[in-house]
Write a protein that binds this DNA or RNA. Sequence first.
DNA 1: GTCTTCTTCAAACGACCGTTTGAAATGAAA
DNA 2: TTTCATTTCAAACGGTCGTTTGAAGAAGAC
Lengths: 211, 211
Amino acid sequence: MTRPAEYTRQSIIKAAVTLFAEKGFEGSSVRDIVTKARVNQAAINYHFKGKDGLYLEVLKTAFEKLTENAGFDAEKLKSLSREEALRSFVYQQLRPLLFRDEMSRYIRMFAWESAHPSKVFRKFMATNSVSYLTAAVDLVRRFLPPNAQQRTALCAAIWLMGQCSIFVRNRELFAQEPFSITIDEPFVDELTELITRLAIGGLLQASESRG
Amino acid sequence: MTRPAEYTRQSIIKAAVTLFAEKGFEGSSVRDIVTKARVNQAAINYHFKGKDGLYLEVLKTAFEKLTENAGFDAEKLKSLSREEALRSFVYQQLRPLLFRDEMSRYIRMFAWESAHPSKVFRKFMATNSVSYLTAAVDLVRRFLPPNAQQRTALCAAIWLMGQCSIFVRNRELFAQEPFSITIDEPFVDELTELITRLAIGGLLQASESRG
DNA sequence: GTCTTCTTCAAACGACCGTTTGAAATGAAA
DNA sequence: TTTCATTTCAAACGGTCGTTTGAAGAAGAC
């Protein structure tokens, strides 16, 4: 295996992550990707066996990177109080509103999938959902009564994960009319505070009535 | 104007509403629509000046029908207590999980747009957002302190409207693995209860800390 | 009847999509 | 230097998309 091959692979992955984060999987064409990566059209099929294969590869690395970091690491969340853990989770999900770093792009990719999961993502989740979903399930379970049904916890977890994705996905939209929201640090802090308290209050309220 | 023309128009609209509700605007092709409506390919362009024009027409009637009915009518919501109004709003949004009637299809259409608004929808909202968004803004304002910023209320309203759309959009998905959720009346009642309490508790909590 | 306007229809257009092809370039092993 | 698998490349393929075309059909006015 020669060296330039690996460089091409990484170029494609980097361009793909950027575009998938911006427009989602279906909104990004392979022509857009190869143009951004400055490689040939056929490179994606040669190196990843197609667009789906590339996405699966990207999802795998994104998932690994996310679980390595704060906010999605189950162990770290357990060391915090449930309120702090929730706040950490929410802030992590809102991160793409402020930063355009690697982690933000990964989160934004998942935000697209939370709206309407693609086939590739569902296939990916079928094998990796354990560590991905249970982190959120564990988190909400700390607010729910111990005897809460698994179905209730699952719904609450899905609900929680979708909380921020509307804002993350449509970042550019909210900057325009009729919203005209300036997305800066104070705003994201405020939004984190709002959503965290919405979730905390909501989960506790749900707990009280259904326990 | 001959009679069959109006019949063709209505056939197209009916088929379009069904398909837009099931797969969203971009997920439904004009070929699917004309096949379902049993009309010619060119009919959509002749009667509606293109797919966008058809969607605009459908959005207009859907919007009218929705504002005429409970849950979205601002006046009716005001006559209820804020908790009952919120519950009514949530239940209305979850309606497509149980019923497959006209109203459910309209709600589901809007659920698709809440994920990632299309150009046509944004254009439509630019002229009709007043009555559409302010109903939700008015609702959440009853839980927020009087001096809450408009920006906060706007975010809370967007947040609220997105609460149910995940479940509505992906109804079929949650019926499969790994969720295997049977979507029947008891479940929707439970989900309504859960989300309503999540929202009530959350909005009040937010109110207490920021008032 | 003819004329006119509205409506339908089969066929094609041009654009984009993901993918495939087969030859050319590359670079290490022999 | 020759050999050979790996990698790049321009071009094309087959498909779907929304839209356009121009002729044919339908129905009332004259």
